[in-house]
Amino acid sequence: MNNIYLPQLVTIEEIRDEAPDVRSFKLVFKDPRLREGFDFKTGQFALYSAFGLGESTFCIASSPTKKGYIQCTFRRSGRVTGGLSQLSVGDTMGFRGPYGNSFPIEEWKGKNIVFVAGGIGLPPVRSVIWNVLDNKADYGNITIVYGAKTVADLVYKDELKAWDEMDGVTLVQTVDPGGETPDWKGKVGFVPTVLEEAAPAAANTVAVTCGPPIMIKFVLNALLKLGFDENSVYTTLENKMKCGVGKCGRCNVGDVYVCKEGPVYTAAEIKRMYNDF
C-alpha cells in the first residue's frame, strides 16, 4: 500500500543553537538511496516528526546545492518543536517531503536580488540565498535586509558575518527599537522601514521576503511603494499544516491551498488572495 502519510527516517547529525529557543538540525536520511538521491527545490517545505508528539511543518532551510544532507531551523514554541528540542545528535526524526512549489530562481538569472527577512523568517530565505550564492556568477548584486526583535534573536550569526564579507553582497541588519545592545553596529528600526532606506533600485531586481505575517504585509507594501513590479516580488506563506498534501483542510487562504499551490507566491498572487494569512 502506498501510504502518503508515512515519513522517512533521518538522523540528527549536528545541532546548532541559533538564538534563544531557536535551533538548527543537520539531518541525514537513514535510507542510503535517499542520502544520495534526495532532491528538492529551494522554497519547498517538509513535515518533521518528533515520535510520540507528532509532526510540524517548516521549510527546508538548506540549499539544494548542498548535497548529502538537509537542514531545518525551528523555534521551540509548541508540542512538537518542544519534543524536537529534546533530541540529541544521533537521534532519529521523521521527515515527510519535499512538498509545495519553489522559488523560480532560474528565471532570475542576470537580475539583482534583495532578500528581506524578519526573525525566524530567515530560514526559508536562507535556502534561496545559498542557492543563489552558490551560483553567484548567474546573478547581479545581492542585498540582504535582515532584522529581529533583539540582537540575540538574530539567527545564523556566523553566516551573516560570512555574507557581510562576500563581494557583491550587501548585508543590512536591524533590530527592533529597544532590542539593540551597547555594541550593536547595525540599524535600529523595523524591517519594512529599514528596507525603504536600504533597498536597491527596483529596476532589474527581484525581491524575496519572509517573516511574521504582519511583517510580510508591510514589506510587500514597502516594495511596491519602492517601485518593484508585483510579479518580481516573492514571499512564502508558512501556514499551519497537518498533511502537507492538500487533504487536511487548514492551510487554505480563502480558496488557495498553501501546501499545494504555495507556499511561494508573488505579490501579484497575494493581492488576488484573501487577506487572511
Partner: peptide
C-alpha cells in the same frame, strides 16, 4: 473531511493517527 494527524502513546512506542478535526 478535515482531519488532524497526531501521535498517541509514549515517547517510546505508539501510533500515528488520522482523526477527524
Amino acid at each position: 473531511r478535515c482531519f488532524d494527524i497526531t501521535d498517541e502513546g509514549t515517547a517510546f512506542e505508539g501510533e500515528r493517527r488520522k482523526n477527524w478535526d
